[in-house]
Design a protein around this nucleic acid. Sequence first.
DNA 1: TATGAATGAGCTTTCATTCAT
DNA 2: AATGAATGAAAGCTCATTCAT
Lengths: 198, 198, 198, 198
Amino acid sequence: MARTTDAEGASPVPQRLLAAATRLFAEQGYDRTSVQEIVEAAGVTKGALYHYFGSKEDLLQEVYARVLRLQQERLDAFAGADAPVEERLRSAAADVVVTTIDNLDDASIFFRSMHHLSPEKNKQVRAERRRYHERFRALVEEGQRAGVFSAATPADLVVDYHFGSVHHLSTWYRPDGPMAPQQVADHLADLLLRALRP
Amino acid sequence: MARTTDAEGASPVPQRLLAAATRLFAEQGYDRTSVQEIVEAAGVTKGALYHYFGSKEDLLQEVYARVLRLQQERLDAFAGADAPVEERLRSAAADVVVTTIDNLDDASIFFRSMHHLSPEKNKQVRAERRRYHERFRALVEEGQRAGVFSAATPADLVVDYHFGSVHHLSTWYRPDGPMAPQQVADHLADLLLRALRP
Amino acid sequence: MARTTDAEGASPVPQRLLAAATRLFAEQGYDRTSVQEIVEAAGVTKGALYHYFGSKEDLLQEVYARVLRLQQERLDAFAGADAPVEERLRSAAADVVVTTIDNLDDASIFFRSMHHLSPEKNKQVRAERRRYHERFRALVEEGQRAGVFSAATPADLVVDYHFGSVHHLSTWYRPDGPMAPQQVADHLADLLLRALRP
Amino acid sequence: MARTTDAEGASPVPQRLLAAATRLFAEQGYDRTSVQEIVEAAGVTKGALYHYFGSKEDLLQEVYARVLRLQQERLDAFAGADAPVEERLRSAAADVVVTTIDNLDDASIFFRSMHHLSPEKNKQVRAERRRYHERFRALVEEGQRAGVFSAATPADLVVDYHFGSVHHLSTWYRPDGPMAPQQVADHLADLLLRALRP
DNA sequence: TATGAATGAGCTTTCATTCAT
DNA sequence: AATGAATGAAAGCTCATTCAT
């Protein structure tokens, strides 16, 4: 009866399905992953999947929702801390790197599979994504207004510059490589802060 | 025979197929694009496609090959110019942004569909990609050795930092938005150079 | 008889299920109607349905049984009345038209979905149907023996001729059309009686 | 390798598919017939079916189109003949009965499966059906104006009365029964003409 | 009396690819 | 050089029914 690690008995069925889907979507991409593979990995049948999720796409959306919620919570915590703005930006910028590396699966899916969502759901995800972006941008603008950050570059562009590098992590970062997640995070946050020096 | 895309006097059919495939892959993704759609868009039949290309995947590889060759040529030109290293880096960094925006289709495909290539072909593409990365890194290292760039961050990471933002362009840049390609390019190059200030 | 909507609370669960099934089978056909739709329309769950009915097919059979019982009762009343045979035939022939129009849903199901019943149940329904046919035929034969109806056509065929037109009603009759049910009934009964003139 | 009677080699693939579908739809109904059954009966694969027909529904529509064309042609011939109106109506009314009996499969499908067509296609079929009805009605009206038919009943209703009995044939007529198709046809046409006597 | 999670078989349709011509 | 009929495997999804509670 032994199946894969996500197999039966361990946790409630919806969670098992979500975990299996996350791993497989990240490994193979959304289109290349069949519903059959997902249910086999989760140790259930198709009927069970469709009992809990309306469609394969719904499963993808749930993955997104979970990631977005998590990242937003962390950003809010770091951005709202009681510290100078440059420290808050640095710690938030580094944290998103570490979190992303710790969940490279989620990150791969995030940037690669967004276009598989229906327009409607895509809009929803983009809206939440926007909230995240804006919270980060507000940090940059706060520093620019305070004069501790250069205002030479529009804050929007600064945010996209940094998140580009986060997005890119899943392309090049390897857990068995020479750099620890925290090291990478420190370097990337440092680059951001240095770019913002007045 | 003349199999390459821009070669002399080749039949227009392969080019038409390549162009159609590029557009459709960018719009819908590789998996969501059927061979039938491609041949219809190119105005030929399936038999013709399989006469020129061994498989759908071959078509994708050709798209990659074309993009990679183009970008490598441009980088070589900028990096090898007769100018101070900071100017050469700035112009190369800005140029890749403009070129990417001018060919957002290619860029979308590039970062989204790489994993659809077979391991063998993937290796080939990664090798060429590596050459590109290394030429860029060499520029950074040259500046670091010369003391005009800070050496606080490993050059590799600097390159990935910048290319992350380039990669990210297809996610957020809109041609009808407020910023012209050159403006975006100048800002992003500026951020890079500022981050490298000693 | 208080059948408000099919929603919960109004009437006993089996009736609610039967009413919902009747409407949905008529609207969409037996195969196109899912058990899920039926229980939702009836405001209960699947378990409840399977508590009262052994299967989806049983539900269909109940619909048939109800219709057949009703029509047989009416025919018996009209055919056994104390009146000349031509009046009894005319009123019975007209009544089945009015009753059918008043229950077009039942009629649609009757002629369209009979083949969904298992052979066993089909036989049962056909037997009851036969009883109905024979009571009607007896009326015709009575008139033929009495010389008030022409005997040129076998009574069986006469009955099928008339019931063909009744069957056909669900194809063309529209409640919002120009003719009232009773008008249609009078015309069709008249055609039958005229065809039987010696 | 022996398959059913519709199997490979006999006739072109589309015809084989159409023939197999007609038989199966009539025997089991549209919903109960799987695409798999059709292609097996025709001795081809699913891919072949979808090469020629866009969908299962398209197959049904083709069956309809063929029947409608045939019946319209026959009616036009009989109605336009050079003979007294009562003879033309009688022969047309009898012919549709014989033709229907000769193609009981088509008739079963016709009246049982119309509602499986999409609204769009249903409209198309209804329009052609209407043409047929109107040609027949014109015959009745011609006789009514000429005074050879009673005008007591609206011509529309007369037509529906007769076609009800034709429609009904697939419910009761059995080829191995006591009456030959032509006998049934003569009786039914006779009933119609008798009902129309002034 | 009633729930609803779970099953497993079956459904229609899509698609990259082959091959005789 | 090019066609297009045909394949065969796999896809996402539906559904009547069961059963522990």
